[in-house]
């Protein structure tokens, strides 16, 4: 078999190189998003052609992007974290109470948000990695706890009146060279909220972490096969711990971004966000069995998810009901695709 002409061999191999699982799923995700957005522009008219329409998707989903990034990380590492949605609600409520009732300023409230995220990450990470308890159960307890604590801090919704915070919430960052003309012919530049910048920063930071740092690559190795990872000389427990810790931090940051977007505290904030985050990750090409996934994919996963919501809304269907069904259908298709890929890979091995 070594006498094969090297040219044809390397050609064959090159074809295969393009198709690592992560890249294949990432490619599918981006393609789905682009096709979906183009369809929306073609069939649903002008609303979607304005740059602001696209940036509004970002404005609406900045926090979901951050939560999904954390979720992807844990899923790549072979775990799951279903507490992120309720941690978001807890962060909102804690920060709101801090700003309005305790006379805090925005900087201390940010510290509180990070602290809450860190605390959840630390405890859950410890239980999962070092006590080897199933991540689903641990984070389910985290979900319960965050939910209860939110209500215990304050049971009802209220809007934050802190001036400093209101100014921060209202800050709009203009996007250079993008915008549209209104009916009077004036140029209205497109804008994004501060949260979007944070989200973009998180995406880039995590993308780089996963791509170029040792820890980031260890996430993939542990998720791929944690026994092998151990044999290859990787500290599996520490790696799992870090995954949950970072996910907790993301929940803290995402929670604050959500808070900046809505400007209020409420026990019902971000309910179900964990499921949206999981769905985005899966649509973004993260394998729930671990080891495969990409933060860029997750980013597009969130965009796909919200684009489809927007499409359903502009089709005039009752949004709340139809979006859920569409999201679930999308999730189902992506799960089946993954399952088939996995089955094909396993059969190849034999």
């Amino acid at each position: 078999m070594f006498t094969v002409n090297t040219d044809t061999r390397s050609k064959k191999l090159k074809n295969r190189v393009a198709l690592t699982d992560t890249n294949l799923l990432l490619f599918i995700t981006i393609a789905v998003f682009v096709v979906m957005y183009l369809c929306a522009i073609i069939f649903l008219g002008k609303g979607f052609t304005k740059p602001q329409a696209f940036f509004n998707i970002l404005n609406e989903n900045a926090s979901l992007i951050i939560l999904s990034c954390g979720m992807s990380l844990v899923m790549i590492c072979g775990g799951i974290d279903i507490s992120v949605g309720q941690v978001t609600a807890l962060v909102c409520m804690a920060c709101a109470v801090h700003l309005d009732f305790q006379g805090g300023n925005i900087y201390t409230s940010m510290l509180i948000a990070l602290g809450i995220g860190l605390a959840f990450g630390l405890v859950q990470g410890f239980l999962v990695a070092y006590l080897e308890i199933q991540p689903f159960i641990v984070t389910l307890a985290g979900l319960f706890f965050a939910k209860g604590m939110t209500t215990i801090i304050n049971a009802s919704q209220f809007n934050v009146e802190n001036e400093q915070f209101k100014a921060l919430k209202a800050t709009e960052v203009t996007v250079p060279l993008m915008g549209s003309y209104n009916k009077a012919g004036d140029f209205i530049p497109a804008y994004v909220e501060v949260g979007v910048l944070v989200a973009v920063f998180v995406v880039i930071a995590l993308f780089c972490t996963l791509r170029w740092t040792k820890l980031g690559r260890n996430f993939y190795a542990v998720g791929g096969n944690n026994q092998s990872a151990n044999m290859l000389g990787i500290n599996v427990k520490f790696t799992k711990f870090m995954a949950h810790l970072i996910c907790g931090l993301c929940a803290g940051i995402g929670g604050y971004v959500y808070f900046m977007h809505v400007g209020s505290g409420s026990p019902s904030h971000a309910s179900g966000a964990e499921m949206n985050a999981i769905a985005s990750s899966i649509i973004g090409g993260t394998m729930l069995t671990g080891g495969v996934g990409n933060i860029a994919g997750t980013f597009f996963g969130v965009l796909s998810l919200s684009t489809i919501k927007n499409i359903v809304a502009s089709l005039g269907l009752d949004e709340a009901w139809w979006t859920n069904i569409t999201v679930a259908a999308m999730l189902c298709i992506f799960l089946l695709v993954q399952s088939v890929i996995l089955a094909r890979k396993n059969s190849k091995k034999k």
């Binding site: 159960i137 979900l143 706890f145």
Partner: peptide, 18 residues
């Protein structure tokens, strides 16, 4: 409060699983 109940449940779950 009905929502706060879950915090107590969480403590029960954690003690059990640990």
């Amino acid at each position: 409060n009905s929502a706060a109940i879950s915090a107590y449940k969480a403590v029960v779950v954690i003690i059990l699983v640990v």
